[in-house]
């Protein structure tokens, strides 16, 4: 080593790193079969239809569930008389306080209408949340944890 070496010139002439013999020549042969075998598969992007149907099914279940939970209890339970009609009338007159049935029914109707309205709003919100293809792909990368790669591959600057 001479007394003074200029790093700039020295580095340009001598790369301090070496590679094994024929490394670059062999690299191509090593990578080719590996690449042809590996084809990245995306469940979500390749099964968009399935995903759509699944989402619709989930939505229907959700709406069904909401309706079921908000319906007044026992509305559809068939009534069975366990006493004669005259006895029932007597009991009704004596035990049940005077109730304005029409008012109660209209209140119940209003409540049902409000709930149905709320369900529709919720449904609309869910519709707005439906992702397009690009968003599904973005989400997929995000869930895989390589969002930075996604941005690189798609040349998106933040």
């Amino acid at each position: 080593m001479s007394k003074y070496q200029t790093i700039n010139k020295m580095e340009k002439k001598n790369n301090p790193f070496k590679v094994p013999e024929n490394y670059f020549e062999d690299f191509e042969n090593r990578i080719s079969p590996f690449v042809s075998k590996t084809k990245k598969r995306y469940f979500f992007t390749e099964n968009k239809e399935v995903l759509r149907y699944a989402a619709m099914l989930v939505l229907l279940f959700a709406i069904g569930g909401i309706i079921y939970l908000t319906l007044p209890e026992g509305k559809n339970v068939p009534q069975t008389n366990i006493a004669s009609n005259s006895l029932i009338d007597t009991i009704k007159q004596n035990l049940i306080p005077n109730v304005d049935v029409e008012k109660e029914v209209s209140l119940l109707d209003t409540e049902i209408n409000t709930k149905t309205q709320q369900n529709k709003t919720q449904e609309r919100k869910l519709d707005e949340l439906k992702l397009n293809d690009e968003e599904i792909k973005y989400l997929e990368y995000y869930l895989q944890g390589d969002i930075h790669d996604y941005l690189t591959y798609n040349e998106i600057d933040l």
């Binding site: 080593m1 070496q5 790093i7 001598n14 301090p16 790193f17 070496k18 094994p20």
Partner: peptide, 13 residues
Amino acid sequence: NLFDSSEIEYKFQ
């Protein structure tokens, strides 16, 4: 052994 082990290169790295 795939690195030039001269002192100057090592110091530079």
